[in-house]
């Protein structure tokens, strides 16, 4: 058995008296695309933040890239191997797109500036942005372009695992489909692992190898075909509602 790239063991998180996750377990294998769904307030973002070490769990252990995650103490030597795409892009507003992508390269590696600039051009073209975007500021970009630029920044260091927080939210269906294809393309090129929080049934359907559902403070993970048969009222409503039926009732998938 190969060691999983991300493993969570008996994770308990909460704020004050409110428990968000109770004994949550998860293993993510190298190269797979995992989608996380759950109702509002079910703790999707809390789970992501716990994995990234931005929140201190009450108990349990998280191993990312064979290293235990220590909250608030993020080592560049580990974080350089993963990329995060935040919901709003989180591009630094005082820097141009080019400087945004160079930032992690210059902070973490000792690469020379000309090479960094070449990497910027390369990553921008990978995410489908023209080279002219490089000199623009985030405030001059549309929502879809911000997501692409932020993805380019997340890819700057060739990550082994990519965390996506609602990558297609706020995008029109055409941009969302394009974004899904982009992730799928890059995944086949780089072979990285993807951990994705999403509510977009379409993109869950096209992208994910497995789906994790956050219900009752726990995570149920399985392939799409099996997840949609789970006997849970929320799961049933989610995947067999009007929107879900149109996408998941297709027996070919």
């Amino acid at each position: 058995m190969i060691e999983p790239i991300l493993s969570i063991h008996n994770l308990v998180t909460g704020f004050g008296r409110q428990i968000v996750h109770q004994d949550l377990n998860l293993n993510v294998q190298k190269g797979e695309i995992l989608g996380i769904v759950g109702g509002s307030g079910s703790g999707k973002s809390v789970l992501l933040k716990s994995i990234l070490g931005l929140i201190k769990p009450l108990s349990g252990s998280i191993n990312l890239l064979s290293q235990p995650v220590v909250p608030y103490q993020l080592e560049a030597s580990i974080s350089r191997h993963y990329g995060v795409l935040f919901q709003g892009g989180a591009l630094y507003s005082s820097l141009t797109v080019e400087e945004n992508i160079i930032f992690p390269l210059r902070e973490i590696s000792r690469l020379s500036l000309p090479l960094c600039k070449e990497i910027v051009g390369l990553k921008l073209s990978m995410v489908g942005l023209p080279a002219e975007t490089a000199s623009k500021y985030p405030s001059q970009l549309s929502g879809g372009m911000i997501k692409r630029a932020a993805l380019a920044r997340a890819l700057a260091l060739d990550p082994e695992i990519l965390f996506l927080d609602e990558p297609t939210s706020g995008l029109d269906p055409i941009s969302a489909t394009e974004f899904d294809e982009l992730i799928l393309n890059l995944h086949s090129l780089f072979g990285f692992t993807v951990f994705m929080i999403s509510h977009d049934l379409e993109s869950l359907h096209t992208l994910c190898d497995r789906i994790g559902v956050l219900v009752n403070k726990k995570l149920i993970t399985d392939t799409i075909e099996k997840i949609i048969q789970v006997k849970d009222p929320w799961v049933q409503k989610y995947f067999h509602g009007q929107r879900g039926r149109a996408i998941f009732s297709n027996p070919l998938h």
């Binding site: 070449e118 910027v120 390369l122 073209s125 080279a131």
Partner: peptide
């Protein structure tokens, strides 16, 4: 070979302002 091909395919130069 794949990586070299990938880099060649996606290479674009950033225009100098």
């Amino acid at each position: 070979g794949k990586v070299l091909e990938l880099v060649e395919d996606f290479y674009q130069e950033i225009p100098v302002p």
